[in-house]
Nucleic acid binder design. Structure first.
Lengths: 144, 144
DNA sequence: TATTGTTATACTCTATAACTATA
DNA sequence: TATAGTTATAGAGTATAACAATA
């Protein structure tokens, strides 16, 4: 395949994949946690307590948008917020016991769902290729 | 890497990539065509005229949602609709001259943008890998 | 001055429900 | 009955603007 042709073919395939992934991951009705919620919960679990602003910077969204996501999780008792003793403006968010349980049990967890989709439908070689490509796709996102 | 560990690592990377791609492709202000609009225009260009229902089935969204996308393109003079002579319910959508021009000129076109992002920031080997992986990502979407 | 967080508001893209016209 | 298309309405997840409290 010629270089330029390959480029457009690849770009079209990427655009198509993004479109489909966007739609399919929007349908959250059968899941306990939406995609943004899963991201926040996993982040707090792996990196420890953080503020709304910190989480927003990490996910590259506005603090207002992160506030909405966090608020939903708090109202469901999955996160709790304690004041930062060193900075009275900040609140430090962490998982409640219920939140940690939900994440560990991992039923209906988005990452688990993806893991199952991978395990059930792809060969180990394809999974290895997907893992490498996920990093490349993240890099693509940086340039859009 | 152990099988199960690799699976979760891969799933997390995929989830992260999807989250970032979703956000970055939402910002349409600097573009003439949004992602769904680009999809419809490219489809009509490559496969010829189609109805709203046909396009909706292809993109796997409801006819109502597709009607909204198409309506926006029609009102900007990029698509026009002619009645299907064989079925008075249907309208056949195709690109107007302006629509075809926009797609061919491809300035601010999403696919072109992706193509440039690829060309400027990835090696030919990486682009080949991305092309293969895009198909795998589409398959992942089918199982979510 | 800069940062943390909030409230108010609006946009995009999608969904479900209910309808008319045609097949 | 089934399909093509429309209008009405709602929801998730984002954004910008404007503000209060604190650093």
């Amino acid at each position: 395949m010629r270089g330029e042709e390959e480029l457009l073919t690849t770009a079209t395939a990427v655009r198509r994949a993004i479109s489909l992934l966007k739609r399919r991951t929007r349908e959250t009705q059968t899941h306990d946690l939406s995609l943004p919620e899963t991201a926040v919960m996993s982040r707090l679990d792996r990196h420890g307590p953080d503020s709304i602003s910190g989480l927003a910077r990490w996910e590259q969204i506005t603090p207002q948008a992160m506030g909405a996501t966090v608020g939903g999780l708090e109202s469901r008792g999955l996160l709790h917020r304690i004041p930062d003793p060193h900075d009275k403006r900040r609140g430090l968010l962490s998982l409640t016991e219920a939140g940690a349980d939900l994440l560990r049990t991992a039923r209906d967890n988005r990452t688990e769902q993806i893991a199952h989709a991978l395990a059930d439908n792809f060969t180990p070689e394809e999974i290895a290729e997907i893992r490498r490509a996920a990093t490349l796709f993240e890099r693509i996102a940086q340039f859009l």
